[in-house]
Structure formats: structure tokens, C-alpha cells
């Protein structure tokens, strides 16, 4: 079962986990990304493309499902305005054994940062507003998945 979603509403992590784990899978791994309040950040805004952003996430989910034997996969990304502490992204992957579930989660979060049409804009308490720049390390992490056979 693959569930992919993009939306402006808060991600209900507990409810998503309950639905995902209802399958009673042998091994499950998860990643929860939250807004950090570093440097007086007051708002994180995620811009997206209404068609290409969900399409990109679906493509990544399909790649993960083709690469590892997964019993269930949940990939949810929030867009729009968020406050520190709120959940931006949730990745859940389940398999019969841990290695595949853990690898799939790492693959999805790494590739999400370089392949999917999403842009972060930060606003700070002192009035500064700016677009986040892509980090070199993000590309290096994403490219590892091109090189390794699995």
C-alpha cells in the first residue's frame, strides 16, 4: 500500500502512523521532519507546484517500491505556512526485515531534497525574509543512490 499526500493542513503523525501500521508489518522505519526555530525563525513557508510536486513525490515513492520489497509506504509533505515545531514531512516504510525499510526511508528523504519541486522561505522575528539555498551536502547524499546498486 502506497500513500502519498501533499497539503497545507497539519500532518497528524499519530493518525498516519496508526493507519500505516494497521497492516502489522514485520519491520517499520520512520522519518519525521519538523520546523526548527533556529535564529529567531517565526515562519517557514513551503512553495510548491500544484501538479508537479505531488507528481514528483509519487514518482519517488514508485522508485522506492521498485527498488525494495516494501509492504507499505507513506510519504506526506506539508506546504504553505508553518510555525516552529510543526511537522514538514513524514516518511514511513515497512517491510519484512529492517534493512529494506531503513534504506527506503533514507532514500526517500535524501532524494526528496533534490528532486521534488518544493522551495522553503524563512521569516524571522527581526523582519528578515529569505529563500533557503540548496546545500551541497544534499546533492552528495542524493547522488549516493545513483551509484549504489541498492
Amino acid at each position: 500500500m502506497i500513500r502519498v499526500a501533499v497539503g497545507a493542513g497539519a500532518i497528524d503523525v499519530a493518525a498516519e502512523m496508526a493507519a500505516h501500521h494497521a497492516g502489522g508489518h514485520g519491520a517499520s522505519a520512520s522519518f519525521v521532519g519538523r520546523v526548527r526555530g533556529d535564529g529567531g525563525l517565526t515562519e517557514l513557508f513551503l512553495e510548491h507546484h500544484p501538479v508537479l510536486t505531488p507528481g514528483g513525490l509519487e514518482q519517488l515513492a514508485a522508485e522506492a517500491a521498485a527498488r525494495w520489497k516494501l509492504a507499505a509506504l507513506t510519504l506526506i509533505h506539508r506546504v504553505g505556512s508553518m510555525a516552529p515545531g510543526e511537522t514538514i514531512v513524514l516518511v514511513l516504510a515497512s517491510s519484512a526485515h529492517r534493512a529494506e525499510a531503513l534504506a527506503a526511508v533514507e532514500f526517500l528523504i535524501d532524494r526528496l531534497k533534490t528532486d521534488v519541486m518544493l522551495w522553503k522561505r524563512e521569516a524571522f522575528a527581526d523582519g528578515r525574509v529569505g529563500w533557503v539555498e540548496q546545500r551541497d551536502g544534499d546533492h552528495a547524499r542524493a547522488e549516493r543512490w545513483e551509484q549504489s546498486a541498492d
Binding site: 507546484h49 508537479l52 526528496l112
Partner: peptide, 28 residues
């Protein structure tokens, strides 16, 4: 991106379609 597919600088433009132009992505 040309009609939803990432495209490099050398990619040929289609006769018609949607070309999205944007900075490097920063999701996740």
C-alpha cells in the same frame, strides 16, 4: 522542467507546452 519533467540547459523546447523555471529545490 518541460511539461513536468526535469530538463537540462541543452533540452530542446517543444512547439507548445509548459516550461517551469525555478531555483534549486529545497524541500524535505
Amino acid at each position: 522542467a518541460i511539461d513536468g519533467r526535469m530538463a537540462g540547459a541543452g533540452a530542446l523546447l517543444p512547439a507548445r507546452g509548459e516550461i517551469a523555471l525555478f531555483p534549486p529545490v529545497t524541500g524535505g
